[in-house]
Nucleic acid binder design. Structure first.
Lengths: 212, 212
DNA sequence: GGATGTGAAGGGGTTCACAGCA
DNA sequence: TGCTGTGAACCCCTTCACATCC
């Protein structure tokens, strides 16, 4: 198939595949087939092949996929050829936990700015990065060429922060505040709602009628 | 429609609706219609009505939905009539950030145990809860009647922890480690992968062919 | 009149099954 | 032979449009 359009559901699985392939590479497996990838990723082989086929023809019939080459392809597809420049807005417990998360660096993310509104935090240094004032959000975003923003401010401030981020040119936001952000066309938001996820789990705990 | 089976996609939206309704209640709106809910939730009115219809007939034609009554229904459906008993396994930065997250209590979750393997942390008290040893995981889970476990241990320990949780009777796990957990039928896992989410955002930043 | 509840239509995503190629 | 790549079938979810009821 000619690479052209990639279904959103496929995009969502790409990071998972990438993780599995890196793992395979670390285990010195030069080649893997779709069945093996499916096992690692917890899906089925047909799904894996279909997903990869949207990106191009990377496999060899009768053999499988060359791991390192596929890692390169996926990384390129995900825009991870160089680290993405990330800002964290809101340096509370969650924000600081995220800043020091080692998985970011390993997976193509680089935190380049940390912003908070609390004067007691502003100016403190954490992991080599100085916490800066929310007042200066716009110039910080531009100065650091921020590509992705992680919002961990209290819910009532989240929309305001998002508006300023968008106005400053940010086109990708990960929101941990439990509010639905409204953003213009062309800006991508992903919502993280831990309490909501736990509520979904809670649903399944109920002794109930079976699902559809 | 006779309540019977609820599509997984609908279940995933229930926490969102609940949040919106609580907000509407706080704004002293006694009744809302599907258009208003859709606006708050960022979906469309047909979706809202269809979702609610899986749960029963809660609305009044020509009027809309009585907010407080709908909150009660949704809470019941999500199994939140009393707080769910949650354990946090892995008291690193992320685990401790989650423990002190006020949104849990507001939304039906109660952290009843915190477990870690680090002797330096064991015995310390945080927010009224004593950090206990991972060695005692099984008895802690049973003693506290843990219903939902949040796993924030390093990736290489996550599967082992999950196995022990399942063996102790836990049937709902929220996993923050970047590994795919394998669990028996009947155990529900939700995967939180922040780096993966950022990679999805990164994909959308690429100047590229349009999506399907 | 007005908004719900719901069959029916429409659109995607997943799975199947096999053609195609090393 | 063996595994990929993919059209087609299948299934589920979303959206539409309207009958239904307050």
């Amino acid at each position: 198939m000619t690479p052209g359009k990639i279904p959103p559901t496929t995009v969502q699985r790409l990071p998972l595949y990438l993780r599995c392939l890196v793992q395979a590479s670390a285990m010195h497996m030069p080649v893997v087939n779709s069945v093996q990838i499916a096992e690692m990723a917890g899906t089925n082989a047909a799904q894996v092949r279909k997903d990869f086929s949207y990106l191009g023809e990377f496999g060899t019939r009768g053999i499988g996929y060359e791991v390192d080459s596929l890692i390169t392809h996926l990384s390129k597809e995900l825009g991870l050829t160089e680290h993405r420049r990330v800002a964290i807005i809101g340096f509370g417990r969650l924000g600081s936990a995220l800043q020091s998360y080692p998985g970011f660096d390993e997976r193509g993310m680089k935190v380049v700015a940390v912003i908070d509104a609390d004067p007691a935090k502003i100016g403190t240094v954490s992991d080599g990065i100085t916490v800066e004032s929310a007042d200066d959000l716009e110039e910080i975003v531009k100065r650091e060429r921020v590509e992705i923003a992680i919002v961990t401010v209290p819910g009532k401030y989240a929309q305001g922060v998002a508006d300023r981020l968008v106005a400053s040119g940010v086109r990708a936001i990960m929101n941990f505040a439990p509010v639905q952000l409204v953003v213009p066309e062309g800006v991508e938001v992903r919502q993280a709602d831990v309490a909501g996820e736990l509520q979904v789990l809670s649903f399944h705990l109920n002794p109930r009628r079976t699902l559809a």
